[in-house]
Simulated scan of single mutants.
Amino acid sequence: MLLFWRVFGLNTVVLGLATALLLWAPVTVSVPILLTEAVVLVVGMGVMLITNGALLRWGLAPLARLTALMATVDLLRPGQRLPVAGSGEVSGLIRGFNAMLERLEAERAASSARVLLAQEAERRRIAQELHDEVGQSMTAILLVLGRAADDADGPLREELYQAQEITRGSLDEVRRLVRRLRPGVLDDLGLVSALTSLTNDFSAHTGLRVVRRFDAGLTVLDDEGELVLYRVAQESLTNAARHADAERLEVALEDTGGAVTLTVTDDGRGIETVCEGAGIRGMRERALLIGADLDITSTPGAGTRVRLTAPLSRKQL
């Protein structure tokens, strides 16, 4: 039924009932009108308006649900759809909106995949240049400073040794940046070893205590899935260090029956409402890349939990 005929039909029902009541009810109108008759007419008008409003609200409820979904839909949370019943104008509108959401979600997932893959390729290139050029240059500087310090006398030797230590510290920082940009251990030894190295570096750099719980014999994802898990863990640890004011974190990797679940929990201050900045939205985009579910919960005074549930691949540890 078209929306016009639906509204027209509802109003016709209300007016028809009101007319039938006037015909059958023993109510008359005097001239001039009496107070009791005026009260009856006003009450009848009120009942008619209330009935008409209730019927219209019922008839237009699908449009209200559609409006609510349009105001809250988020392409980073796919699967939001409205049920469709019948074949009328409103049902066609809802079907068209659901189809549009499917197309937008598919296009968003494809574009996010292209962006993230390009980002990883650029990180790999920068990490390689830092390792091959900057790292080697600083290593050569260390050797030159060492030889110069051995041949120098007195105060100059101490200054050269000091410059050597500063250079060595800078070289260590460059190597740490290279590992953050592209974890070679992930490619060489797999996800568990990469997360172990990540948490060790994080604990040493921030001073926070990190507890690991990794299931033995995990069925893991393909290379793309492993990289998504690693990046989500990396971003979760970074957010905890910057914002949570935590003392202890727990990183868990477990087989939950048909899926691999990564959970990062901190004992920080938590927040009432999770504010989704660039970091969290980036994690959601990575989750979409492999069809994973990302859930972030935070309780004031009880910390924050980030849980990523990713479908399993056929690859075995």
Score class of each variant (00 low, 15 high):
R179H: 11
S91L: 05
A241G: 01
E107W: 01
S298C: 02
D215Y: 02
T219Y: 14
R65F: 10
L312Y: 04
L312F: 04
V228S: 13
L249S: 09
Y230L: 15
I290C: 12
L145W: 12
A163S: 13
R123P: 02
I50P: 01
D222Q: 04
S112H: 02
A241N: 08
V251C: 13
L253C: 14
D255S: 12
D222E: 13
R6A: 08
G135P: 05
R123Q: 10
E129I: 01
L160W: 13
E247N: 11
Y161T: 07
A310R: 02
E254K: 10
G146Y: 02
R77C: 12
R242P: 08
S193I: 00
V7F: 10
V185E: 00
L249H: 06
L171M: 12
V232H: 12
G257P: 14
G184V: 04
W58G: 03
Q80G: 08
T206Y: 11
V228P: 09
M1P: 09
F4M: 06
G291D: 07
D266E: 08
A244I: 11
R147D: 07
R123K: 11
A140S: 13
L49E: 02
T219A: 15
A18W: 07
R242W: 01
L21H: 08
A85Q: 14
A246I: 00
I271W: 04
V144F: 12
D293Q: 12
